[in-house]
Design a protein around this nucleic acid. Sequence first.
DNA 1: TACTGTTATGTGAACGTTCACGTAGCATGT
DNA 2: ACATGCTACGTGAACGTTCACATAACAGTA
Lengths: 353, 353
Amino acid sequence: MGKRVTIKDVARETGVSRQTVSRVINAQPGVAEDTRARVAAAIKQLGYQPNPAARSLTQHRTNTIGLIIPYSPDYLFSDPHLMEFMCGVDELAIQRNHNLLLSTAQKKNPAGKLSAQKESFSAFERLALSGYADGVVVVETLASRAGTVLLRERGISWVTLGYGTENESSQVVHADDRGGARQATMHLLSLGHTRIGVISGRKQSLMAVEERLTGYRQALSDLNLTMDAELLVAGDWSPESGTQAAAHLMQLDVPPTAIFAFNDRMACGALQYLQANGWRVPQDISLVGFDDIPIAQMLHPQLTTVKQPALEMGRQAARLLFDLIENNTLLSTPVILPTELIVRGSTGKCRGS
Amino acid sequence: MGKRVTIKDVARETGVSRQTVSRVINAQPGVAEDTRARVAAAIKQLGYQPNPAARSLTQHRTNTIGLIIPYSPDYLFSDPHLMEFMCGVDELAIQRNHNLLLSTAQKKNPAGKLSAQKESFSAFERLALSGYADGVVVVETLASRAGTVLLRERGISWVTLGYGTENESSQVVHADDRGGARQATMHLLSLGHTRIGVISGRKQSLMAVEERLTGYRQALSDLNLTMDAELLVAGDWSPESGTQAAAHLMQLDVPPTAIFAFNDRMACGALQYLQANGWRVPQDISLVGFDDIPIAQMLHPQLTTVKQPALEMGRQAARLLFDLIENNTLLSTPVILPTELIVRGSTGKCRGS
DNA sequence: TACTGTTATGTGAACGTTCACGTAGCATGT
DNA sequence: ACATGCTACGTGAACGTTCACATAACAGTA
């Protein structure tokens, strides 16, 4: 392999100084047009490509942003939006001529003794300690708090995809979980359902759960209804937990006529239980999910659900990050993107009671 | 913000030279134990973190590997393994203390005039021209050939996740598509099916299609059967195309008693068509998919399918890449990972004819 | 004693850029 | 004539490491 082509080679070839070449590369003023053209030609001819490390060294920035996805492989499919987040963030990185550094959670070691907390944290640690990123987009998980503390210590700017912790002034982008849940509930109410079972996530897990519950309650209280505590069951986002929750709900003395699951995967599980036990959907019972993952359209019946604009969320988060890095603009209010109720075949008029 | 802590600060604090500190950082010999301890303490106390850019500059490597996923967002869900690939690659990157740089395809601009080829290519271009990666793992797509040419020009090592082009000596990792297809077909044959419809991908798209077809034919010829050309229909991997293909197959004069779709998404579409038109699965017709995406388990009946070890494929690809970068070991034979037939509820004994 | 080798440490240069200047050359205005 | 300003460059230093040496101290050997 020959030596790498440097700025000096281009300068020598063209008969100008390094600085002039540098000016051409960075499209700075103060270079005569013909000189600029000659330099550009030489760059092309020699196949010169600036060394990013050398640039970073003088400029004190790497033109790289990080994306922390603190999920381990086994948990990957729990959130079908991750790829969309990624693409949204990457799209903006492309626009701004930045690279995208990715950090996922370290896989649980076979012994299995690495806690979910530690696991998540490793994703932060690696990126923060590498010193490579000018800023970071963090996908929020149960355990991202410790991670953001580390980022603050290191003086690295970040934007959270999710709800941050309350006392973080940091910027956050999330979907309108409350509004989505409210819309879904209103849809069911308008079909005549009043006993609506809820399969939520465990409370302590994510702020989004709280928000969706609030939306649910709001819709009820609009009609002067209140929530029946026995209709609330917590799952762990997995299809299996949806199946269990549905079983529990349908075995109540007065079972619900509709079920609202807080993600599509649990809705899938619920659907399986219902169909396996002779309940017809939507004739006997209506079912609504949340997320609009691809599966939703392929179920039988197709699932009515609340869609989140994941791609756009990724874009917005990156946009905020760049504002923060480049203009030091700090936005104090969260960016909330609209959710959308997609009505499909799993919901219908209430006939019961 | 205070100045960044440099190696000089540590040296001054400890009363030794930069070089000694450097030796401690890199765990090189030739430092007295007590000195080493003192330096280590100072590093910790000052919170010193080596500047990666400066390191790269002298060492001529960045400790960063790239992952090129030349899919645009709208095509994302077509391959549910992408996240697993990512995690597998990242897992090894972590192990080897490398960063992972990600490059996805640029989104089609609204005008829509950016061809799929160009779109894919952009993912390569960005990473290759950035000069940041010591090597790259490429997820193969229709249009990755142009991309790998660019990589070669730039002298960047890469490993392909998929089948490479034939004249590439480059290293490849892929699943045993042929064996998987063969196993699936044998499974159907053993259930008594002899007219087995195939929903494949378009021929020119991926080598994997050819391989799966070969596996299918091999299984048939083991029983001295040959393939009936009218039973082969090409889809485009989408559920909709699966629906159409199933419609075509079932409207033949002698419809098949089993269908083998070359991915689960098309199998889903086929299932929808079958169920909507009164065919019972598996009583009237058996259905097999490929990939084992999460949906497969949630369908009704659950889908029999061929599973690919995506996570392991990602790991292997990264492993090969590191061998290439660090030891310059070039493996000339492809790494082929086993696929596994997962028998679920969508296949049963042939009753027909 | 002098030679040799080993261990622990230090020093200048180099990596490839950009930054902060400096310096011509020329036009303009008074 | 001179000062002033602008344009088009060039130069040394700096960024924070590591590399390739050099050096000093000390032990062992002949």
